[in-house]
Design a protein around this nucleic acid. Structure first.
Lengths: 170, 170
DNA sequence: AACTTAACTTAACACTGTTAAGTAACGGAG
DNA sequence: CTCCGTTACTTAACAGTGTTAAGTTAAGTT
């Protein structure tokens, strides 16, 4: 907070006139990050084939997280209240989860998913988890020499392939 | 540190006689957690079928993370130096990653993986990422009402199925 | 008996987020 | 034109971090 105050050339206390506390400030930051993030999917939304759209979304997700690690951390790697958000839930242009769910629903409606998979939320959550694991592990443990990490691009490609082959019909 | 000092009934400074700083203390905690975690796989190691062994390992991984969220956080969700570890790298009884890699290698040797997958590290890392995504998202965002979360058991089962169908031959 | 080392303690420092109290500037209402 | 309340701040301080400098006490060792 003090460093923010320095940067904006106000006293630390001035911030508390605009935000209840640090968490509220971060939550609003998260909010705008999330909106910008979802907005980045508009181009991808125009890809006609839903499978290719899912592939592109996965790549975009990974790229966002890896180029904005501290934003990603704030958004997905720390518990933070999202109840005060201004994002209209369910709108794919603002809500990235809704965007993913939309693709999943389209794939499910056209019978591309395996028979046993009928729950769009469940499928979307597992897909998200896969991509999130990739990104968050890279952010938290890329410096760790314990594991001989393969290039993140290679891991991303393998993850996306695994997700598609694992969930869709052959 | 002060709270630890209270609990052990010493002054906060006393801790600094035994650990360089807070990070070093946490790192040692991580170390013993990691060893205990890997040790828990010994029972699973006796499952003869490598596919069933991988399934069981995945379930055990998720269970560990979900029953010890703060340990899991410390171990896998925050960057922390592991160079001062006392775990012998590569020993499956101490090193959980080596255990996973062992299963992958066995599956690969018996030609169970898809043709294009020949890198044990790459495969192990993607499998780990999938399970880690599941656990870490649950830990960080389970309270988040934005998403209508499906039960974690259901997500775990679907993730493990996805991993196996996504990486192995039919 | 003197010296060294290990295992502490107290007191303080620098750094967090946060708040209580005070102060200018502005914009109507009487 | 003055009074008054709101808005947007400031300074000073508080309580909480991790951490360290300096001093103390007990146990060996020579």
């Amino acid at each position: 907070m003090r460093r923010i105050a320095d940067r904006i050339e106000y006293s630390p206390t001035a911030i508390y006139f605009h935000f209840r506390d640090k968490e509220a400030l971060l939550a609003e930051l998260c909010d705008s990050d999330f909106r910008a993030f979802a907005h980045g999917f508009t181009l991808i939304a125009q890809i006609p084939d839903p499978v290719e759209r899912l592939r592109a979304a996965g790549r975009a997700y990974a790229e966002f997280g890896l180029t904005n690690p501290s934003h990603y951390r704030l958004m997905f790697m720390t518990p933070k209240a999202t109840d005060a958000t201004t994002i209209t839930k369910g709108n794919p242009e603002e809500d990235a989860y809704a965007f993913l769910k939309g693709i999943v629903a389209e794939l499910m409606a056209t019978g591309r998913f395996r028979e046993e998979l009928t729950d769009t939320d469940l499928a979307a959550q597992v897909i998200w988890s896969g991509m999130h694991g990739l990104v968050s592990l890279e952010i938290a443990k890329c410096k760790d020499e314990w594991v001989e990490w393969r290039p993140i691009e290679e891991r991303t490609a393998t993850m996306i392939d695994m997700i598609l082959r694992g969930l869709l019909k052959d």
